[in-house]
Design a protein around this nucleic acid. Structure first.
Lengths: 155, 155
DNA sequence: CCGATAAATTTCAAGCTTGAAATACCATGG
DNA sequence: CCATGGTATTTCAAGCTTGAAATTTATCGG
């Protein structure tokens, strides 16, 4: 016998519990994204996708190809192209044709892009930390471990 | 002295750990969304936003207003309008003007919408369960507790 | 070298999404 | 009653996103 289950839906099959967790997780990430989007719009007149691209280019200072960029951000090639187009038009990002493979383009932050991003990054981190206010060190330990496991792709 | 820290970045300030967790979490949700999108497209010729709307209407069978719908899905009003427009055109969803408040519209699944969604839901749950393959009961306990805490809004 | 196949990028149409403005309606305090 | 402010929805422009097709270049077996 299983005994009483005062905690509620423990009797759900695994797949249903995973579904409920997913719905909850989507809710958390969507709210956080909404807050960050608002923050970037109001305080820095920019958007989440632009920030994401700049952040990726900041972490990979040596430059990345368009394909690497879309893989890093988990978006389509076409999407990467248009966001980079706009950032390039604003002088925040530079495309450089590869010398060894004429199909390939390297993308990198310009000096201005670097400067702008570094202005953004600290503010963004602070706002994010407010968003995740009551996530403490113990939560982070547990979450990180689980998210790492979830991130390991299956094939 | 702190001694050695073979596990890596434990010395990060809280805000940096939260940032890293967020990046990891975004990665997990984006991959999962990409897999689900692909699944819905290939196997059911539909999209994630359409699925989300139908799922919300399925959980609230009695019908919801447009505002409730956008609050439930955490999207803008304008967005809810256009997705519902398309679903309505396909006969999966019905708008009914409120009798008590002429500003308000109630949205609900049609019979066909209900039938279609129920065909989708089981498949979706199964695919999601494959996506979260190695998330076991213990992980679900831990995750659910933390996500609940993260979900509690701050004001 | 040639032809076939594959890879990197862009282009494009269609759909998604936001945020602000417009429209219509309700509620309430003079 | 009516003016004022608030709520519900739609509309719209601009930007985002996908997936497929098109273009250009590389690679590799023959």
């Amino acid at each position: 016998m299983d005994g009483l289950d005062p905690e509620g839906p423990r009797l759900d099959p695994l797949s249903k519990r995973r579904l409920k967790m997913w719905i909850r997780m989507l809710g958390v990430t969507r709210s956080a994204e909404n807050r960050l989007r608002e923050f970037l719009r109001v305080n820095h007149d920019t958007t989440l996708p632009r920030f994401d691209v700049m952040a990726a280019l900041w972490r990979r200072r040596e430059g990345v190809t368009m394909s690497e960029l879309s893989r890093l951000l988990l978006v389509s090639n076409g999407n990467a192209t248009t966001v980079v187009d706009r950032l390039e038009k604003d002088g925040l990002v530079r495309r450089t044709p590869s010398t060894t493979d004429r199909r390939t383009v390297h993308v990198a932050l310009t000096d201005e892009g670097l400067r702008v991003f570094e202005g953004l990054a600290a503010d963004h981190e602070a706002e994010l930390s407010r968003v995740f206010d009551h996530v403490d060190e113990a939560d982070l330990d547990a979450l990180t471990a689980i998210l790492k496991r979830m991130g390991r792709e299956k094939e």
